[in-house]
């Protein structure tokens, strides 16, 4: 069934791609999101984000560090 991202559904696993390699110790700063470096020189922040408000708080932290967002992808269950 089709649903729009995050309207009602909560606890979605997100993949947020960020430009450049981010040091893994930023994991705490991002409330425990996993930091993975990609081969193309970028970083993926991944983990379960409880709701839209929490997602925006992650965006705010990204903003405050001056990081560049490349993409944001929610992963549906069972994928």
């Amino acid at each position: 069934m089709f649903y729009s991202i995050g309207t009602m559904k909560e606890h979605i696993h997100y993949l947020i791609k960020i430009k450049n390699h981010l040091n893994t110790h930023w994991g705490d700063w991002f409330d425990g999101l996993t930091i993975t470096k990609t081969a193309d020189g970028n970083t993926i922040l991944s983990g379960v984000i409880v709701d839209q408000a929490a997602l925006h708080s992650v965006f705010k932290k990204i903003r405050d560090l001056g990081l560049t967002i490349i993409s944001v992808n929610p992963q549906e269950k069972g994928e």
Binding site: N20, H21, L22, K37, N42, T43, G66, L67
Partner: peptide, 8 residues
């Protein structure tokens, strides 16, 4: 030459 985040 590094891919690291500039600030880090």
């Amino acid at each position: 030459g590094s891919h690291r985040f500039v600030l880090d």
